[in-house]
Computed example of a mutant assay.
Amino acid sequence: MNNRLFVEAVLYRYRAGIPWRDLPARFGDWKNVHRRLRRWCESGVIERIFRYLAADYDNEYMMIDSTIVRAHQHSAGALKKGARIRPSDDHEAG
């Protein structure tokens, strides 16, 4: 896998908000993409890329905001299936 396809795979995964295992087959084996990202993070490659891009003051085209980043449903504090909220045993509270 070339570097461009790898970066596209990582960006696709984060833009779509999908688990690694749901990465489309056109990007190759998701385990290899994840492994390569982990290695790049550990070796500092990703940090160097971000520092290089951050040095470009005219980089509005690369801005990431909440309109394109999706969180997993459980990250918003959604209740687990079958979870129940029980009243507090502390009768003097609130």
Rank of each mutant, 00 (worst) to 15 (best):
G28K: 04
R39S: 10
R21F: 13
D22G: 01
I46T: 13
D22N: 14
R38D: 13
N32Y: 12
G28R: 04
V33R: 05
L11R: 14
V7S: 08
N32C: 11
S43N: 14
P24S: 06
R4H: 10
W30T: 08
R38E: 15
F27P: 09
L11F: 12
R36S: 06
R15P: 01
R38L: 11
W40I: 01
W30F: 15
A16M: 11
N3I: 01
R26H: 14
R39P: 01
L11Y: 09
V7T: 08
V33C: 02
L37S: 07
R4E: 10
R36D: 05
L23I: 03
N3G: 10
G17S: 03
G17A: 05
R15Q: 11
W30G: 06
I18L: 06
R21H: 14
V45D: 08
A25I: 13
P19F: 03
S43E: 15
R13L: 07
E8I: 01
R21M: 11
I18F: 02
Y14P: 01
A25M: 09
L37W: 09
I46E: 07
E47W: 03
L37Y: 10
R13N: 05
N32D: 09
R38H: 13
W40K: 11
R15G: 00
H34Y: 15
R21A: 13
V33F: 04
V7H: 02
K31S: 14
I18G: 01
R39D: 08
V10K: 04
R35L: 11
R35W: 12
